[in-house]
């Protein structure tokens, strides 16, 4: 490492810039968390802006986690995230691997067929009809199956599999392995970082399931977390018909936001090392 004045100067600028970026990312989170911990009346007293809570209260969390429908919807969200991610990964693998094999008969037409769906879709009403006639409406499957496979992710995976040296597969075949074994023992272990990355994409998407829930699910017991939280956040119109409705306070709203985003924030650090690797892989072909 060269340590000239120039370098130091340059480094310090980089650090300052990074610090600004970090603060501007962290500040909103800090704000949300501290509002969720401050009693609402206290918040109003201090002009509605509170970065470090002066008085702590867990009332908002207590009432959200005990009295309301939040725990149930959290359960729904957890189930669809786990099931959905597992199913999505399975489908992606089973789609991407065969398509990455150049000797697959009819590979180009199939690929064209799949890419076609990226550009054109059936639209809301026909999709709704399909989901309804499959008997999926008002089941958790309506939130999992229609979006189970993201074409883009599958194409990434396919490209990745294509980048693996053909010789590996040949030698496996000479040793007597069939396609499934090659996939399980060679292709998948080599692609753990990409799988993790794509799995994370799927997971975040499933956790944030909102639109399919409001369209396909009419049973409130099956509403995922995001629907319930959004309901709390948008509930601000005071129409006279709903005069007796109690609007959730900002403290309660922010607590709901924290509860809705915390699980995904917690998952990131564990996947991050794979994530960086996964992003790089496939960038350089050799």
């Amino acid at each position: 490492m060269v340590k000239g004045t120039n370098d130091r100067f340059f480094n310090s600028i980089v650090y300052v810039l990074l610090a600004i970026v970090a603060v501007s990312c962290l500040f909103p989170i800090l704000y949300v968390v501290s509002v969720s911990l401050t009693p609402y009346s206290e918040l109003i007293k201090n002009g509605g802006f509170q970065v470090i809570p002066q008085k702590l209260t867990f009332d908002a969390y207590r009432s959200l986690l005990i009295e309301r429908t939040l725990p149930k919807s959290m359960g729904v969200s957890v189930v669809i995230t786990i099931l959905g991610t597992a199913l999505s990964l399975l489908l992606t693998l089973l789609g991407a691997y065969p398509l990455s094999r150049k000797n697959l008969p009819g590979r180009t037409p199939i690929l064209l067929f799949i890419v076609f769906t990226m550009l054109f879709s059936g639209g809301l009403i026909p999709t709704y009809l399909v989901v309804k006639d499959l008997g999926l409406t008002n089941t958790i499957w309506a939130m999992i199956v229609p979006n189970a496979l993201a074409t883009f992710n599958m194409l990434i995976m396919k490209t990745f599999f294509e980048s693996l040296p053909e010789e590996l597969f040949e030698s496996a075949r000479i040793d007597g392995a069939r396609e499934f074994r090659i996939l399980w023992k060679i292709a998948i272990p080599l692609s753990i970082p990409s799988l993790m990355t794509i799995g994370l994409f799927y997971m975040v998407a499933q956790w944030n399931t909102f639109f399919s829930a409001i369209i396909y699910i009419t049973n409130r017991e099956l509403h995922p977390l995001q629907v319930v939280v959004r309901n709390m956040l948008t509930m601000s119109q005071s129409t006279e018909m709903a005069a007796e409705a109690i609007m959730p306070t900002m403290t309660l709203q922010m607590a709901a936001v924290v509860i809705a985003s915390l699980p995904i924030i917690l998952v990131y650090p564990f996947i991050q090392k794979h994530l960086t690797k996964g992003m790089m892989i496939g960038a350089i072909k050799g």
Partner: peptide, 22 residues
């Protein structure tokens, strides 16, 4: 009696149900 409720997205929800004959 079942209440199917929506708020901010009520119009979309109703529109989808009507357009699809459900």
């Amino acid at each position: 009696i079942t209440l199917t409720l929506g708020s901010a997205d009520y119009a979309t929800q109703l529109g989808t149900r009507i357009a699809s004959g459900d």
